[in-house]
Write a protein that binds this DNA or RNA. Structure first.
Lengths: 134, 134
DNA sequence: GTGGCTACTTACCGATGGAGAGTGACCAGG
DNA sequence: CCTGGTCACTCTCCATCGGTAAGTAGCCAC
């Protein structure tokens, strides 16, 4: 259940349905397109360098990958390790906290893969009906 | 460009790590801030009217709520029922397909609530270190 | 001394999201 | 008869966000 190591007693309960609640913010972050994919990739294959990650997430811009990784690092979900070499060498991997997100994220990713066909069908049907209405 | 309309052929397996894959798109949609909250709310409390939904999701703009609901309806996750009355009366509820998303989404929402404190702490630590570096 | 490697950073620009006012249909009150 | 209120939008304006592409830094091979 709850972690036994809370430094201080947290608020009775955070609620993402409340305006301005940090949990809503966090939910938004971890659910964002690139964050889901980065975390998924690091979860599946372990530590990874910047360029490799960029290749695996076909289509990310360098800017967004950097930005996503920074946010994830700041949130304590990803650890960034710099090896002072030339050319630069940086590795990213999940922290223990990041590991705890693997389950929920995998469930979401799997859902989207498994139900894509149904959704695509629903869209077609919707669009056909919309055309008829228009 | 390639036509995206003959998607009836179910690919061997969709992969969100592939550029332009519909599953990546879908993952993005269902993970978006307002979609998560709308689906969560409809999952918890059942059918709901527009205005009520707007109150529960403290902070949504009407525009975004409308847009989110339309997308969800088009994707076959939410059913929209209009009662031809005055003043207008519209109800939204999860479809069976939408119901299958409850689990994954609840897991994600719960994670964010349960780990907000750790993340907040990590952010503080990161910011302190960053200040020292700067 | 030019190019290449790696991991960024910066500048620019179109797309997206939020705030807030307007719309249409109808009815109750004055 | 005219105003105000209800509900579910819809439209407009502006700020922020995401994508594209070019630039940066340090060192090495050619």
């Amino acid at each position: 259940m709850a972690t036994a190591e809370n430094v201080t007693e947290p608020m009775a309960s955070w609620d993402p349905y409340t305006r301005g609640c940090p949990s809503r913010d966090l939910l938004d972050q971890i659910g964002s397109k690139w964050a889901v994919l980065v975390l998924g990739e690091l979860g599946k294959h372990g530590a990874c360098r910047f360029t490799r990650l960029r290749q695996r997430l076909a289509g990310v811009s360098e800017k967004m990958l950097t930005q996503t990784l920074r946010t994830l690092e700041r949130d304590g979900l990803v650890r960034r390790t710099v090896y002072p070499e030339v050319p630069p060498h940086v590795e990213y991997e999940l922290t223990p906290l990041g590991q705890t997100l693997r389950g929920p994220l995998r469930a979401l990713t799997q859902w989207s893969v498994e139900h894509v066909d149904e959704v695509l069908a629903a869209r077609q049907e919707y669009d056909v009906r919309a055309e008829g209405t228009a």
